[in-house]
């Protein structure tokens, strides 16, 4: 009985976080008016308003797409603390002392990099450092690029790159990270090609 229960739990957990094949070639991000091309296949997962790809597993490397983040939105739905509040508790004045870090259409590039670091820090549970912020392009649109790094709670150092642009007052941010020891370098070229091929349909 216990084994059956364990199996059910595994199945439920898996069902909640499904990965699917992202084949090599053209990839369209549904509902986001964005496309790219990848030279290799990935395991993809659309969750939390974020598109996440990995090759060897999410603990080893991830390519992440935050697309069309509008003014006032968080980088991921799970980071929106206010949306989780119980309306009855709010009416009773019982609001937790917790704010969300949100994108604002007037943000400058250093402020977006800061928003990213703060948001990623919430997700990873450890401080995230950004550096080498400089002008760049994404999908042919003027934007920015920076490097980042963090050490997870598993004590594994990870490094990453991020490229973004604000188009029509919406933030498009694509980033890639992997273990500093091996997986970042292993898939970096593919990730760079995905970033280079990224396009907005409107752009």
């Amino acid at each position: 009985m216990k084994r059956l229960l364990s199996l059910l739990l595994v199945l439920v957990a898996t069902a909640c976080t499904p990965y699917h094949l992202v084949p090599a070639g053209k990839v369209e991000f549904s509902g986001k008016d964005a496309v790219t091309e990848t030279p290799v296949a990935w395991n993809g997962r659309n969750h939390d308003a974020v598109f996440t790809w990995t090759q060897d597993g999410p603990d080893l490397q991830n390519m992440i797409f935050h697309l069309a983040i509008a003014d006032g939105q968080t980088l991921a739905t799970s980071l929106d603390m206010e949306s989780k509040l119980n309306p009855l508790m709010v009416l009773a004045g019982k609001v937790p002392d917790e704010i969300s870090f949100r994108f604002q259409r007037t943000m400058t590039e250093p402020e977006i990099a800061d928003l990213f670091a703060a948001s990623m820090g919430k997700v990873t549970g450890t401080p995230v450092a950004t550096t080498n912020l400089r002008p760049s392009t994404l999908g042919g649109q003027p934007g920015f690029r920076f490097d980042y790094s963090f050490t997870g709670k598993d004590e594994v150092k990870r490094q990453g790159i991020a490229v973004g642009a604000v188009v029509d007052a919406k933030l498009y941010l694509v980033h890639y990270y992997g273990t500093e020891l091996f997986h970042f370098a292993k898939t970096r070229d593919s990730a760079e090609q995905v970033i280079a091929a990224f396009k907005l349909k409107k752009g």
Binding site: P110, A113, T130, N132, L133, R134, F144
Partner: peptide
């Protein structure tokens, strides 16, 4: 500064 290129721009 880690964002000097951006600031220079």
């Amino acid at each position: 500064a880690g964002d000097r290129e951006m600031i220079k721009s």
